[in-house]
């Protein structure tokens, strides 16, 4: 659990983070969104004390984050810096191994972990491990940056726009991988992004920042349904709202009785994908199948359209 209590950061006369309080439940993902310069990075960096707050307290699992020396605190927290920040003079494998080496893991364990992460991020350890960062594409560098943050299996992970340079396909994959890792290890993640789509998809809760202030901190559905201000409304994108709302739900939760023609859609797919498929194929209904392939029923355009409406 991360408790941020009345955190303020001032540089001379300008307040870049203004009295922010938020509570991040253990094993959840909090996504911070906001315009450029709104203080997202600064807030994130006060958690691992790369920036010291002007006032306020941050507690990790109940303990003040100032109770440890800064460097020890930071070894226990994964940090994917904005723009990857890989060490140009170290190979990809050495970059990923940074924190495990600092923690004094033995060689075999480090190698196993590096290979595991590289494989997860589709970088062949044999081919890419000995390369230097400048020999990688921007997207590959970014994945190495994320792998480096994950290397020591931290309980808390801070990620500053980690998927910005990835193409949609790899980004999707990286998001799914991160969700899988988060579920498996119960990692608490704070992720900064500019991409509302990503925020709605990844976040258990979304924090919206504007000019240093936290203007809304709530579940994605609530942010979409009840934006706290015109600013949040604009950020969410008025014309996108119904689709973002649908993207939060699974098809299995929208199943109706009955049957339909054509190929079945898996119950795990998002309702948005189902609606897209229905609209594109011009059909009124689609069959739905469970994980085991057995028919669950059908989804209809009418049913999904109702769900896309503003919640009461």
């Amino acid at each position: 659990m991360i408790e941020i209590e009345g955190i303020t950061k001032r540089y001379d006369a300008t307040t870049v983070v203004d009295d922010v309080s938020m509570l991040i439940e253990p094993r959840t993902i909090a996504v911070i969104v906001g315009t450029s310069g709104s203080g997202k990075t600064t807030l994130l960096r006060m958690i691992n004390r790369l920036v010291e707050p002007s006032s306020g307290v941050i507690k990790l699992d109940g303990a003040d984050n100032r109770s440890l020396p800064g460097y020890e605190l930071r070894r226990s927290i994964g940090y994917a810096i904005q723009g990857h920040g890989l060490f140009p003079h170290r190979t990809v494998a050495q970059n990923i191994a940074t924190v495990p080496v600092l923690l004094g893991w033995d060689k075999a364990r480090i190698k196993a972990r590096v290979d595991e992460l590289m494989t997860l991020y589709q970088l062949d350890p044999e081919a890419f491990g000995p390369r230097y960062p400048h020999e990688l594409s921007g997207g590959q560098q970014q994945r190495v940056g994320v792998a480096r943050a994950l290397a020591a299996e931290p309980n808390v992970l801070l990620m500053d726009e980690p998927f910005g340079a990835l193409d949609p396909i790899i980004r999707n994959k990286a998001q799914e991988d991160l969700l899988a890792i988060q579920k498996r290890f119960g990692t608490t993640i704070i992720l900064v992004t500019h991409d509302m789509e990503e925020a709605v998809h990844m976040g258990d809760k979304i924090a919206v920042m504007d000019a240093g202030k936290l203007v809304q901190y709530a579940k994605p559905a609530e942010i979409l349904a009840k934006p706290a201000s015109a600013f949040v409304e604009t950020l969410v994108g008025a014309s996108e709202k119904p689709f973002r709302l649908l993207s939060l739900g699974r098809v299995r939760d929208a199943v109706e009785k009955g049957t339909a023609e054509g190929e079945a859609i898996p119950g795990d797919a998002s309702q948005r994908d189902a609606l897209a498929e229905l609209l594109w194929s011009g059909r009124p209904a689609l069959p739905v199948k469970g994980d085991d392939g057995k028919p669950l029923g059908r989804v209809t355009v009418d049913g999904l359209v109702k769900r896309a409406a503003r919640p009461a």
């Binding site: 605190l73 930071r74 226990s76 810096i81 990857h84 920040g85």
Partner: peptide, 22 residues
């Protein structure tokens, strides 16, 4: 490069480690 030095801090290197390793 500023974000390389920051990454070194963020990884938990001490001042001495940052100096000698980065």
């Amino acid at each position: 490069p500023a974000n390389v030095v920051e990454a070194a801090r963020g990884a938990g290197m001490t001042g001495w480690q940052r100096l000698t390793k980065v």
